[in-house]
Design a protein around this nucleic acid. Structure first.
Ligand SMILES: [Mn+2]
Ligand SMILES: [Mn+2]
Ligand SMILES: [Zn+2]
Ligand SMILES: [Zn+2]
Lengths: 138, 138
DNA sequence: ATGATATTGAAAATCATTTTCAATTATAAA
DNA sequence: TTTATAATTGAAAATGATTTTCAATATCAT
């Protein structure tokens, strides 16, 4: 999917192109659900058996720096990553299959303004995550 | 603050009242910001010096089970706890002093319904966190 | 092709959390 | 109040996840 563009971006930022990185990038870019470091490790070893888990951590770190992936916070844990969206986005998670979907759309500015007024806070950012069942699972 | 009520609830659920628990409960119930296990440990030892960090973990577990505290997810980490709200609530966090405020208020049902329609998901829950500066810090 | 240096995986180190265990303590019963 | 029982404790060990170290290897500009 976005694999090629990610590899280009790594290279453009002075990082080298290696088999390990190719395998890792491909796995994450093609996944529709959030993956933990170990899940990436297991999946990527099919394509690149010599891969070390350390390299997965190091590559995730770089991809996050470049804004290509983002961490997903869930009740179960907060160590999983998905392809990052462009700009501000909200997250939809399927409780059954784990599928994640990013979306923007009509924002909740109205609501946020009223909260700001009520609480006295100056609100600058927000996180919104919706949980439920995806089209296939419901 | 809520200390007394929490201790009563612990007792009502078959747990014993101990010095360690009193100290831990008091620290969290009185805090206006989210505290990590180690922060609770350090603060509670003023009042109960023999306290062990293990007991902090064990007590946090029980308080969470009883719905008296809840975990707070932040960019920095997801191991901090605050007094839980009653029912469904949203969270407001001050980026400067760390202060957290729970609030309910007009919900964002409208928005959520439109997302459900657009994406085909059946949405059952949501997490909403707002970040900014509190009244004192802004 | 060559050389500078970025990248690698294995092993060791670190850090957070959980488990084990024997001693202590809270509480209910006598 | 004393006693008996089971819950609770902290220390130490175990576990699990992540990071660091390091010598060998691979990438890429020249
Ligand atoms: Mn938004
Ligand atoms: Mn809500
Ligand atoms: Zn699904
Ligand atoms: Zn503040």
């Amino acid at each position: 999917m976005a694999t090629k563009s990610w590899l280009t971006q790594l290279q453009d930022n002075g990082y080298r192109l290696t088999g390990a990185r190719r395998a890792i990038v491909e796995i994450i870019a093609d996944s529709r659900r959030a993956l933990t470091p170990v899940e990436v490790y297991d999946a990527a070893r099919d394509q690149y058996p010599a891969l070390g888990l350390v390299t997965v951590y190091r590559t995730l770190e770089k991809l996050e720096e470049l804004g290509l992936i983002q961490r997903v916070h869930q009740p179960k844990g907060c160590q999983a990553f998905i392809t990052a969206g462009k700009g501000h986005q909200h997250l939809l998670l399927c409780n059954k299959c784990g599928r994640t979907t990013l979306f923007d759309g009509d924002d909740i500015d109205q609501f946020i303004k009223s909260v700001a007024k009520k609480t006295g806070y100056r609100i600058t950012e927000h996180w919104l995550q919706l949980f439920g069942l995806c089209e296939d699972c419901k």
